[in-house]
Design a protein around this nucleic acid. Structure first.
Lengths: 226, 226
DNA sequence: GATCATAAGATTGTCGACAAAAATCTATCT
DNA sequence: AGATAGATTTTTGTCGACAATCTTATGATC
């Protein structure tokens, strides 16, 4: 039961098929921000009718990956300085809440799970080849506290934010060669998460995020072109 | 230019018309929780086709007012003890962030706006006739910090949560005669919001919410049936 | 009487086409 | 050349019908 990694049986509904094809294209940055998406063209290319495509697009607009300008069309979202600040400030608030809620629920099994996620991530970073996978695994690592919290609303909010972070990391990675995640920072994160000082964990989140934000924020002045 | 309260010109798109008719019915509690909604029946009753109705229903499912059970149908959501706890804990986190973000932006005009919202609410509560309006105005009062924060993601999260709070207040109001909002609590809220101590405001949010939650939480053991 | 298979019903997903609204383009006129 | 009016294109919303999937009800067999 080790490598039971067979393909997802094929999504049954066309709308989900479209989603699982469009989502990676967007969050990976292959469709660059500002890229317009024409319903008709896409429908023909994908060989589907407009109905399920429309729904899939609405899903993507809802999570914020696509922007819909009335009677102009939909395009891949931009991530500017303000967007990034909002993303990070909200994320701090959510992740702090997640740790407060999950703190008492950290069973040995749960902690083992966390360490496993971190280990997988470290391996991928060390390998250094697949940047996309590293991003996914970093997000998966941070999903831990939300899942463990058992707070469905909170988890929902996180799931909504996640694709946007994914997109940003991809853009950042393309623009400046370096892999987004640093091993070092994650080790500290892990240590706090496994420790006994909740306040230290909360403070770490605030510091870690602020630091990461300020680091990448300076790069915006160079590349931003609206 | 005082009573320029003419009707909203009629929503142009059918989907929005359906939303503006269904939403109040749900959040007011007129459609009680568990009530099933059949697409075909509704479509006939409203005199529209299924397409825009489907989209409207999806909107309501997205915000959480409706629950969609695959191949069983959609029904109005229940609000149990856990749901309420999630709603409140998330709300505290969001509203604290909102106050942090808006704290420096509190201009005299903004504060006047806040006081006006509180005044309107107080009047309605004192009149004591229209419970629904009191709920709406209470939510409008709390929207102030989100709007002022200029944090679009945060505002979006609040707007998503709002209808659920509205629904809960309505249910609470129907079950136990009393109006949800208490004047007293709002005065304290206002005083802190206009004051100079951000930490006091944040602490008040935590206390106020926890208190309101615990007060209403006890009532669940009596009425819950599911 | 219980179990399984079949049929009926309901829900959801999908399609193709049409209509309305806005934006864009074009051509004409001053 | 600039501006305005009309025509075309694009996007969006809407409709009615059909197919697929699942649930539930019905009935037959052991």
């Amino acid at each position: 039961m080790t490598t039971l990694d067979l393909t997802p049986v094929a999504d049954q509904t066309i709308r989900k098929q479209i989603l699982t094809r469009l989502m990676p294209l967007i969050v990976s940055g292959k469709l660059e921000p500002g890229q317009r998406l024409r319903e008709q063209d896409l429908a023909k290319h994908l060989g589907v009718s407009r109905a399920p495509l429309r729904e899939a697009i609405r899903d993507l607009v809802d999570v914020g990956l696509l922007v819909s300008v009335p009677y102009k069309g939909v395009h891949v979202r931009h991530i500017g300085r303000k967007d990034l600040e909002e993303l990070y400030s909200l994320r701090v608030a959510l992740e702090q809440l997640a740790f407060r809620e999950c703190w008492a629920k950290r069973s040995p099994a749960a902690l083992a799970d966390l360490k496993a996620r971190n280990e997988t991530l470290s391996q991928t970073i060390k390998a250094g080849s697949d940047g996309t996978r590293a991003i996914e695994q970093e997000l998966h690592l941070h999903s831990w506290c939300y899942e463990l919290s058992g707070h469905s609303l909170l988890l929902q909010a996180w799931e909504r934010m996640k694709p946007n972070l994914h997109l940003y990391f991809s853009l950042h990675q393309h623009a400046h060669g370096r892999r987004g995640p640093l091993r070092q920072a994650h080790d500290l994160y892990l240590r706090h998460a496994c420790g006994d000082d909740l306040d230290a964990m909360l403070a770490h989140l605030e510091d870690h995020m602020r630091q990461g934000l300020e680091t990448t924020l300076g790069l915006f002045e160079a590349a931003a072109a609206s």
